[in-house]
């Protein structure tokens, strides 16, 4: 892939029941958003651990998006609350590492909220575009490779 013009690379981890279905709904309703995002499906947002998110930042992501069910609507009772706690902790860690915490975004999107999904993707892409590339890559990026 050519590197003529930088566009943000965004990885999305979406729970199967709400946010992934919301992303499908955006598709069914033909609601356009920028093609920066690459979606990875998991059964619950609480499946995602810090290592996966850090790995994403380390290997080229400019932003990571986590999408779960609205509070009270988690398919697995309360997985989304756990996600929230973990993401909050990780955001602080990222700031500490010199990565703007806005590069990690958690949103609750229901299966019916195609519009919210598409708007969120648009606003995240815009925000990251303004912020510029993930600073880890300016320093060669893969210095943390195991």
């Amino acid at each position: 892939m050519g590197k003529q013009q930088w566009t943000p690379k965004i990885v999305g981890f979406l729970c199967n029941w709400c946010c992934y279905a919301g992303a499908d709904m955006a598709g069914t309703s033909r609601m356009k958003y920028p093609p920066n995002i690459r979606i990875i499906r998991v059964m619950c947002s609480s499946r995602i651990n810090a290592e996966m998110i850090l790995k994403a930042f380390q290997t080229g992501a400019d932003a990571v998006f986590i999408g779960g069910c609205h509070p009270g609507n988690c398919h697995y009772v309360d997985g989304n609350y756990r996600t929230k706690k973990r993401i909050d902790v990780l955001k602080r860690l990222l700031s500490h590492m010199g990565i703007d915490e806005r590069r990690l975004r958690l949103e609750w999107v229901s299966a019916a909220e195609g519009e919210k999904f598409s708007q969120t993707m648009q606003s995240l892409a815009d925000e990251i575009e303004q912020m510029g590339p993930n600073p880890l890559h300016l320093t060669g990026g893969k210095t943390y490779e195991r």
């Binding site: 998991v42 609480s46 499946r47 651990n49 697995y76």
Partner: peptide, 10 residues
């Protein structure tokens, strides 16, 4: 087990 994977992440 319902397979949410929350335990695996933790």
């Amino acid at each position: 087990c319902k397979g949410c994977g929350s335990c695996a992440a933790a």
